[in-house]
Computed example of a mutant assay.
Amino acid sequence: MAKNVRTMDCQPDDVFRVLSNGWLYPTWVVGASRMRDVDESWPQPGARLHHSVGVWPALLDDTTVVEEWSPPNRMVMRAKGWPIGEARVTLRVRKYDGGTMVRIDEEPVSGPATLVPSVLTAPLLRWRNSETLHRLAYLAEGRAS
């Protein structure tokens, strides 16, 4: 499992305002390149984001599903990334030193990626998720009052 932590100069509600807008997904998730649709029930459990990954002309259409939505502390998603597989992504958010600490955990849960030892996948996921949290911070801090 890959784990990353970042402190942000905003409040947990600011982070969850970004997470609750499914159309913003490709602006903060590294690898997501465009949105095709967002279920009306987003971000409630079972709701789906319909997005694409990659760059044109090599785009793959995929979905991400909410497994748990507990603002302002926790969100769990199951992100598809076929042909690589699926991953469970958990975001934990809490107040910290006048701001917010966000932790993201990602682990492969199905498909070929589960066959690759975590000693190989974790460093790549940590590198990607470091940038993901960096982008999420820009959006959350920019929306802070």
Rank of each mutant, 00 (worst) to 15 (best):
V65Q: 13
E141V: 01
S118I: 06
V15N: 00
H51I: 08
G46D: 04
G46K: 08
V66R: 04
P83R: 08
V5K: 15
R34V: 09
V53M: 14
V119W: 12
V119G: 04
A79L: 09
Q44N: 11
W56S: 05
Y138R: 13
P43W: 08
I84A: 11
R34Q: 15
D61N: 12
T7K: 15
V5Y: 10
W127Q: 13
G99T: 15
R88C: 02
A137S: 14
E68V: 15
L59I: 07
D61K: 10
D9V: 13
V119P: 01
V93S: 05
M75I: 09
R126Y: 02
K3L: 12
D105N: 09
L115F: 11
W23S: 14
W28M: 06
L49Q: 04
S130V: 07
N129G: 09
M77D: 06
T27V: 10
G22L: 09
G46V: 11
E131C: 02
T63H: 06
F16D: 00
D61W: 03
P108F: 14
A32V: 14
V109F: 03
R143K: 11
T27R: 15
R74F: 09
K95H: 14
L19Q: 05
P57I: 00
R74V: 09
W69N: 05
R36L: 12
M8N: 07
L139Y: 01
L139T: 00
Y138G: 06
P43T: 13
G142C: 02
E131Y: 04
D62F: 10
R88T: 03
G111D: 03
V53G: 05
D97H: 14
V65P: 08
R128C: 09
G31Y: 00
V29S: 10
R6Y: 03
W69I: 08
L125R: 10
S118E: 13
